[in-house]
Simulated assay, not measured.
Amino acid sequence: MTICSRHLFSRRLLAATLLGLCTAAPLALAESDSLGWIEKGLVLPERVAVKFKLDTGALTSSMHAEDIDEFEKDGDDWVRFSVELEDVDRDEKIESTFEREVRRYIKVRGAGGAERRPVVMMKICIGDKVYDEQFSLNDRDRMNYPVLIGRRTLENIGAVVDSSKTFTTEPDCSNT
C-alpha cells in the first residue's frame, strides 16, 4: 500500500469508527434514561404528587386550571387561576390559586374548533430535578391526567419516552 492509500484507509476507518460511536451512544443513553408514558411528578411549590402524561404528540405542556381570569399588571398580561389536583400520594384534593405572567398565547385546534390559551411558567419535579417550564392552561377535568408533558419540556428533561413503560421513577426533589 502506498502512503496515500494508507492515509485514505486510516481516514475511512476513523470516520467509520466515529460514526459507529455516534450512532451507538444515543441508543445506550436512550435505554438507561427512558421514562414511561405515564410518570408521577410533583407540581411545585405545593409539592402535589400527580400523574403526568408524557405526550410526544403535543408540542407545549398543559396543566389543569379552572377559573382562568386574565388581567393586566404593570402593562403586562397576567392570569389568575385555580388548580385543583388529586394528590396520588395523600389521596386528597389540593386546591391552590396562582397568579402568573402570560409568556405567550397558543392556538389549539381540536374537534370542537380552535381556542386561544395562555401559557405560563410553572415548576415541576420529575425524578430528582426541578424544571421551570411553559404550560398552557386548560380545564382538563374530563381528561385522565391533569398534567400533560409536551415535546419542549421532554427536550429539556433529556429523556426518551418508552411507550411500553409507566412509573419508572419517583419524584424526589426534597432538597429544593
Rank of each mutant, 00 (worst) to 15 (best):
M1L: 15
I3R: 11
R6W: 08
H7I: 14
H7E: 13
L8Y: 08
L8T: 09
L8K: 14
S10M: 11
R11F: 10
L13Q: 14
L13S: 09
A16G: 01
L19C: 09
L19Y: 10
L19F: 10
G20W: 10
A24K: 03
A28R: 11
E31L: 05
S32E: 14
S32F: 04
S34L: 03
W37K: 14
I38P: 06
L42Q: 07
L42W: 00
L42K: 10
L44V: 07
D55T: 02
T60I: 12
A65V: 02
I68E: 03
I68Q: 00
E72K: 13
K73Y: 06
K73N: 10
G75L: 06
D76P: 07
W78R: 09
R80F: 00
F81S: 04
V83A: 15
E84A: 15
E86F: 15
D89E: 11
E92F: 09
E95F: 09
S96N: 14
E99A: 14
E101Y: 04
V102S: 09
R103K: 14
Y105H: 13
V108D: 08
R109Q: 12
G112V: 09
A114L: 01
E115H: 07
R116V: 15
R117D: 09
V120A: 08
M121E: 13
K123Q: 13
K123M: 08
G127P: 02
D128M: 05
K129Q: 15
V130D: 04
Y131A: 09
D132R: 14
E133M: 02
F135K: 05
N138F: 09
D139T: 07
R142H: 09
N144L: 11
Y145N: 10
V147M: 00
G150A: 05
R152S: 04
E155F: 04
E155S: 11
G158L: 04
V160W: 06
V161L: 00
S163C: 09
S164H: 00
K165G: 02
K165C: 00
T168P: 03
E170S: 13
C173Y: 10
